[in-house]
Write a protein that binds this DNA or RNA. Structure first.
Length: 238
DNA sequence: AACGCGGGGCA
DNA sequence: TGCCCAGCGTT
C-alpha cells in the first residue's frame, strides 16, 4: 500500500518543536512592545473587515492597505454592499494597491459567496477550498477569525522567519510545503493564535526583513543561524 | 513547478 | 534599475 502519511523530512523533530515554542514566546514578548497598530486589528473592526482585508493584503504592504482602509470600508460596509458593487468602480478603488483587476474579481466573488451564505464560511478546510478566492492563507484566516480555530497565517513573512530561524523549505510554493505548514501550525498551537500570528508578521516586517534584516536588534539572534553572525561580528553589513 | 497580476517604496 | 510586498488561480 502507498503510504499516505508525509515523508519523515516533512515532520517536525522534537528539537524543532522546542525551538519554535521558545520562538513563539520571545516574539509575543517582542510584539507587546513593538507590535504595529493596524486598523483591522482593533476591537472595533468587524469580522467582515478582518476577513475582507486579507484579500487587500495579498502581495501588498500592510501600510499601503492602511491608507485606504477607512474609505474602503466606508464605501463597502458589508458583504452585501461589496457583492452588489460595480466591478469597474471597485477596480478604481483598488488601483492604488496594485493587482486591481484580479483583486476586484476575487473580492467580489468572495463577497458574493458570503452574501449568499449569511456571512458564514465553511469551518472545514476541505469545504473552504470550494470558496472563490480562498486559498491556503485566506482559508486559515477565516478558520481563525470566524471559527476560532488556531491556524497559522503562513505567508511570505512567517515562511521567512521559520526558514531563517529553523530550516529552509523544500518546495518553492509556500502553500504546498508540508514542513512549513506544520511548523506554522506548531507556532500558533499555544497562546492566543491571533496574537502569535500578528507577532510573527510584525517581527518579519520590521526586524526579520527580506532585505537587510536588523539582526542587531533581534530578540532571538542568539539562536538563529543568521543572528549568530552578528554576535561574532561577521554579518555587520553596513 | 512556474507564471501573471501591479502599483509603490526603497536602496 | 531591481527587489519586494499578510496569495491565488491557471497552465
Amino acid at each position: 500500500m502507498a503510504k499516505k502519511s508525509g515523508n519523515r523530512r516533512d515532520q517536525l523533530t522534537t528539537g524543532q518543536k522546542r525551538k519554535i515554542s521558545r520562538l513563539r514566546k520571545d516574539l509575543v514578548r517582542w510584539y507587546q512592545v513593538h507590535g504595529r497598530d493596524l486598523p483591522w486589528r482593533r476591537d472595533a473592526a468587524k469580522e467582515y473587515e478582518k476577513i475582507c482585508v486579507e484579500v487587500l493584503l495579498q502581495r501588498t504592504r500592510a501600510e499601503v492597505v492602511a491608507t485606504i482602509y477607512t474609505s474602503f470600508f466606508q464605501r463597502y460596509p458589508t458583504w452585501n454592499s461589496l457583492a452588489g458593487s460595480e466591478i469597474s468602480e471597485l477596480e478604481e478603488v483598488l488601483r492604488p494597491l496594485g493587482l486591481w483587476r484580479r483583486r476586484a474579481q476575487s473580492i467580489k466573488s468572495l463577497a458574493t459567496y458570503a452574501a449568499e451564505h449569511d456571512g458564514v464560511f465553511p469551518s472545514v478546510e476541505s469545504e473552504l477550498r470550494g470558496v472563490p478566492a480562498v486559498g491556503q492563507y485566506v482559508g486559515n484566516a477565516i478558520l481563525m477569525f470566524q471559527h476560532g480555530q488556531a491556524r497559522p497565517l503562513v505567508d511570505v513573512n512567517m515562511a521567512r522567519v521559520l526558514e531563517r530561524f529553523v530550516r529552509p523549505r523544500r518546495l518553492a510554493d509556500i502553500r504546498h510545503d508540508p514542513w512549513l505548514q506544520a511548523a506554522g501550525q506548531w507556532l500558533v498551537q499555544a497562546g492566543d493564535p491571533c496574537e502569535v500570528n500578528w507577532a510573527v508578521l510584525d517581527f518579519a516586517a520590521l526586524v526579520c526583513r527580506a532585505r537587510q534584516p536588523t539582526c542587531l536588534e533581534c530578540p532571538v539572534k542568539a539562536r538563529c543561524k543568521q543572528g549568530a553572525g552578528v554576535i561574532s561580528g561577521r554579518v555587520g553589513e553596513t
